[in-house]
Each structure stands twice: as C-alpha cells, then as structure tokens.
Computed example of a mutant assay.
Amino acid sequence: MKKFKSIALALVVVLSAVSVTAQTKKVDVAKSTINWTGKKVTGQHEGTINLKDGALVFKGKKLVGGTFNVDMTSLLATDLKAGQGKEKLEGHLKSEDFFGTEKFATATLVFKKLVTKAPNVYTVTGDLTIKGITKPVTFDLTTTANTASSTVIIDRTKYDIKYGSGSFFDNLGDKAISDEFTLAVALKF
C-alpha cells in the first residue's frame, strides 16, 4: 500500500509539472487595423497601414508571445483626399526621408518580455525593426478571447527617420515634425 501511495504521489507531481501547451492564434489581417497619427507644429496627419501577418501565443489564457510583420508599402494618409496633397504626402512618407519602403517593405515586431499588469492587460517589451534598425519598444496590450488592442508610441528618430525633426535640425519653425508617432492597433484573431 505504501508503494502504491508513493507511485500515486509521483504521478500527481509529474502531472502538475506538465505545462499547458502553447496555442498560437493567427491574426486575421483583413479584420485587424493599424491607424497612425503623426504630428507637426501646424497640425497632424492620420492614416492606416496593413499587417502582412501576425500571431499571438497563449499558454492557457495567459499571453506569452507574439510576432508581427507590417506591410510598409500599404501606408496611406486618410485625412487628405486626392488632389489635396494626399499622393504627395504618401509618396514622401514612403521615400528615404521617412520609411524608405522601396528598400524596407516590411517592419517587424517580436515580443521579448511580457508582464501581467492586470487581468488580460500586459506590458509588452518587443524588438521593433523599421528600416533595418531594431530597437526595443514598450507598450500595454489588452486582450480578450479573440481580440487585442494597444496604443504604441514610437520615436521615429531611433530608426534614422530624422526628416523635419527639431531634435536634429535648427530653425525649422512651423515646419518641425514631432519625433514621435502613434499607432492605434486593433487585432482580431
């Protein structure tokens, strides 16, 4: 009987040590959105950019990882209409002055560290690569059973995007562009 109890106890210990299998949830890129806002002294511009693909990794209900690829060539301005400078702004943002999309068609984000902030809210630190330059970025991400959302603030100058930056150029006056831009991300999976 003692031997049976020892085996049963060992079995319980082994079963409790088995971790929950990770589940990868692919992002539905057609139903997910990324809206950007860039500010300048005289106002701001807004637009969209598309995900190529992405996935969040869960163990049970806990978020443990994520990877995303963004199609930089899909960058659009939504605050302007054709003939109001829309094409000029989009062309400039895709040029070497900004994102250089001809050479750097994809930006990537890989989650490196996740800390639970509240139920279904995580502080994420990830490696963000824009224009071939990888830097850490930290933001909060809120999840539900089939969605995730975040607002991410990115300092463009860390990715060698210095055009119109008052941090690098003097006498820009009302032509200065904020170093930071904001992404409002809404994912469905």
Rank of each mutant, 00 (worst) to 15 (best):
M1Q: 12
K3T: 13
F4G: 07
K5T: 10
A10I: 08
A10F: 14
A10P: 07
L11E: 08
S16C: 15
A17L: 15
S19Q: 06
Q23E: 12
T24M: 11
K26E: 09
D28S: 13
A30R: 10
W36H: 05
W36M: 05
H45K: 12
H45V: 03
H45P: 10
E46N: 15
G47L: 07
T48I: 13
N50T: 06
K52A: 09
K52S: 13
G54C: 00
A55H: 06
V57A: 11
F58G: 03
K59E: 12
K62W: 08
V64N: 08
G66P: 01
G66R: 09
T67S: 14
T67A: 11
T67E: 14
M72P: 04
S74R: 09
L75H: 02
L76R: 15
L76G: 02
A77C: 11
D79Q: 08
E87C: 11
E90D: 03
H92P: 01
F98N: 02
T101P: 04
E102D: 15
K103Q: 10
K103G: 05
F104G: 02
F104N: 07
A105R: 11
A105H: 10
V110M: 13
K113H: 08
K113M: 05
V115E: 15
A118H: 04
V121Y: 00
G126P: 05
D127V: 04
L128E: 09
K131C: 09
G132D: 04
K135E: 04
V137E: 14
T138W: 02
D140Y: 03
T144Y: 00
A145N: 11
T147V: 01
S149H: 10
S150W: 08
T151Y: 01
V152F: 05
V152Y: 03
R156T: 02
T157L: 10
K162Q: 13
G166I: 04
S167R: 12
F168H: 14
N171P: 06
K175R: 12
K175T: 02
K175M: 07
I177A: 11
D179M: 13
D179F: 12
T182G: 08
L183R: 11
A184D: 11
L187H: 02
L187F: 01
L187S: 00
F189R: 00
